[in-house]
Write a protein that binds this DNA or RNA. Structure first.
Lengths: 206, 206, 206, 206
DNA sequence: GATGAATGAGCCTTCATTCAT
DNA sequence: GATGAATGAAGGCTCATTCAT
């Protein structure tokens, strides 16, 4: 029994070390620089071992994305702790996402990779998993908006639509971060971000 | 004399056929599927021929994106003809973009690709060119909002920020189109889109 | 245990077969004909396999040359066994080289290739390695001449210069072997070679 | 008639401009960097034009080599002017060659290329031409040695063999020039060169 | 006679994946 | 269960050469 458990723990550890290596490479060399061989080398494992833990490269990356989204959710949860005003809660979500995109670039890239790829690229099983994740992300905003409506902070209107709008806005704004050294050089990206989010919140507030 | 012209026309045609093939592949197989060899095969040309029309892959992709943005601008311009109300003009831009993303998928995808790629991927020269293009796109919304402020339709506030918010929103929303068969299956993407855009316009209106 | 050893032996064998193929191609088709792809094909291996044995083409060629020089040194050593007269020893070296150039054409050609290439072709790392090898080759003649001086056979003069002269002469003469069917057709290359070497030895003898 | 002549002159000029471009590129980028396309561009001519003046790349390079050898002969002739002592004449030839290898690197490389390539690479016609050139080069030394014998400066022995030895020596020594920054760093290449040549001359002197 | 456009074959190298051990 | 060796396919790109005009 103890043996079985130890084995299980070792397996998990090995699995995790693969993911660690993958994330690191992803961050260092971008999506194309993170090859299976390099991940294996970095994780100090045989290449074939990777394939006994993950079906293929895409699968590995999907898990990475899920981890990323889990982490994101966690960070948002933590950030929301102790905050009760729905408006501030919404703003907090937005800034958590922005912060995540900067501090966890490697995770952000991979999430972004899956969001931005044309649908065609993924088979339906994979796509379903991605969407499931997306749904969970959406639901966070959904919940806050619902609370806001219930507590009388927000106008009573289609919650899901508002949540979608919210995410679309902050996702779009975050993408534009990379323009800050060129097009947006005469302004401050964070300020724009805040401005936009505030405006959105105001627009759904009573 | 006529001969020279004909040759010139043929060259342009061939150049265009390369771009068409590239766009198609990019849309169908993603960035990794759009290799120079594949493009050449699809265009029914030798690989080396591609290199006599474009310096390298990066150059080709840049031209691809520029053409896409030119077309987008053109379509927006046409759509705006005869419309004078700034609110409607703004909405028209939004829907032109949505329509473009659906009817000109190949063009849309390449634009999207450049927006969504992590900065690292491009050398500065290319990035600058891309940003230049993005700036021109931004300026369309900018102009409309300025008009709106001047004619008293819109609140007098930082125009550029509003334009950025506007684009971020519709860009994000358009990305979510691909969720319409899953997460958004209980609603209509176009309806959500319209709802969001309306809400944005209202939020900057007097 | 025996398994590990066998594997190791197999790896060495495969490595060697790559070198054999490379040498053969280099000799048959010249440097431009000895591409990694061709070598792989000749060795009946996948291209990628070559890269798991050698870092890159340059590395492979370096090893190739080192092996060649090792073999040459070995042959010279063997030929020198039991011979004590410095004059004969020097002559033996010369003829060992000539013999090597004929019997081990593949090896000879690669050495020749590295000597004859314009400096520009190699990065400094490679060049340094080559020179290190060349130095070892030079030292063989150096030693013999030093002995000769000590034993009173040769005039006491700058040893290194004599060694360089010696190698320059026999290297140049060996290159001219290929002229034997045309320019030198009225004489015998080996005879010329011997004549020249004798004359050189005489010129440094007391 | 004048027209015909002018055409002929133009043709020659164009031919020469190709060779000029080729030589320059050869010098700048080495033997592999001098591609037909680049030569054409540098000569401001169409690629196909090159092929109407030269059968193929090898042919062009052969002509280049011939030009090089002509130039070498010319330089040697000039250097020999006014010198009558056969010993000094021989030394002058040697130093002319060394100087040529340094001051006319581009020419020297290409001559070297043809000398050092394995025989196999060239078809017999080409090889014959190369050898013809080599023979002419050889004959210069031949003549001087013959004079020396006649005037009592040199020992009466097989002239041709001496000439071959002479060329082999200076060719070998010149090749070793590239070792001067490494193996020969504690001596001076020119000094070694002179030492060796002097020794050779002494060895054939009465 | 001169040309520029076109090209297939080839370059070196890396990739995701498999399989015998 | 873990692995290292092997690999065909493919990547971007350049080449010498041809051919219609």
């Amino acid at each position: 029994m103890g043996l079985k458990e130890r084995r299980e723990r070792e397996k998990q550890a090995r699995r995790e070390s693969i993911l660690v290596a993958a994330r690191e490479l992803l961050h260092q060399k971008g999506i194309n620089g993170a090859s299976m061989n390099q991940i294996a080398k970095k994780a100090e494992l045989g290449v074939a071992t990777l394939y006994s833990y993950f079906t293929n490269k895409e699968d590995l990356f999907l898990v990475l994305q899920q981890e990323g989204l889990d982490l994101l959710r966690e960070q948002i949860s933590e950030a929301l702790e102790g905050i009760s005003d729905p408006k501030i809660r919404l703003k907090t979500i937005a800034f958590s996402f922005l912060e995540f995109s900067q501090k966890r670039k490697n995770y952000y890239y991979i999430i972004n990779y899956f969001i931005s790829s044309p649908e065609i690229l993924f088979e339906s099983t994979l796509k379903d998993q991605i969407d499931l994740q997306a749904e969970r992300a959406l639901s966070v905003a959904n919940a806050v908006i619902t609370e806001g409506i219930e507590t009388g902070s927000f106008i009573n209107q289609n919650t899901k639509r508002s949540a979608v709008t919210f995410w679309a806005l902050i996702f779009g704004l975050t993408q534009f971060k990379k323009l800050e050294t060129t097009i947006l050089r005469d302004d401050n990206h964070t300020a724009i971000f805040e401005h936009s989010v505030d405006q959105f919140i105001r627009s759904i507030s009573v």
